[in-house]
Amino acid sequence: MYCVNCGAKLENTEKICPLCGTRTYHPDITVDVNNAQYPEGRVPKIKHRSKTLNGAIIILFLIPVIISFLADFRLDGDIDWFGYVLGALIMGYTVFALPLWFEKPNPVIFLPCVFGEMAGYLLYVNCITGGDWFLSLALPVTLGVGLIAEAALTLLYYLKKGKLYIWGGVFIFAGGIVVLVEFLVSTTFGIAFRGWSLFPLVALILLGGLLIYLAISKSAREVMERKLFF
């Protein structure tokens, strides 16, 4: 028979035209679905990745947690350094093991979580050691680095093009962060601002500028490719 929509010639077993998706119809021919080349509606079960391995990894992380807790508590009946170990392990788990639980982990969502944890960890260290550098130094630096990393990752992940522009921007902003670090260190700890961060700033701006120039100029890109291929 023929497809009533696109006119393709079809076997009498076809329920739907394979080319245009129109339901087949013929006044005299009954569609012989039972003699189709493949049975209908019989698909293999998709096996999702076994969660056993993920469980095993949790146990692997729990072992050092328990050992360090016991060691810390038993030594002097007090808990002091265990918090550091725990914080580091939680961060390590978030980075390396947590994405395994998801079918398609999205790094754009994971990265802010990691930076959030990092800020929390630094806050904890700050409180335990009785320092007052968290609000004036650690938080703004973590926030700054986190924002740049998140912006770059989002752009790289969702845009197919413009890698050179994005990396150029990352380098230039990274230079800004270095200056910020020196400034905050000097205000937090009362050290004079000597301006050492200006050297990496200039270098990073030059590097970033070069990448953006390469992104703009096709001929420059070709020259670089010709000279640097390996």
Binding site: L10, E11, E14, I16, P18, A36, Q37
Partner: peptide
């Protein structure tokens, strides 16, 4: 979508060759 098949069918048809189709749609 069977886009490539659609074109393949059409090109054959232009040469006067009619294919009979079968699928597991």
């Amino acid at each position: 979508n069977p886009d490539l098949e659609r074109h393949f069918y059409r090109v054959l048809k232009e040469f006067g060759i009619t294919a009979t189709l079968e699928s597991n749609r």
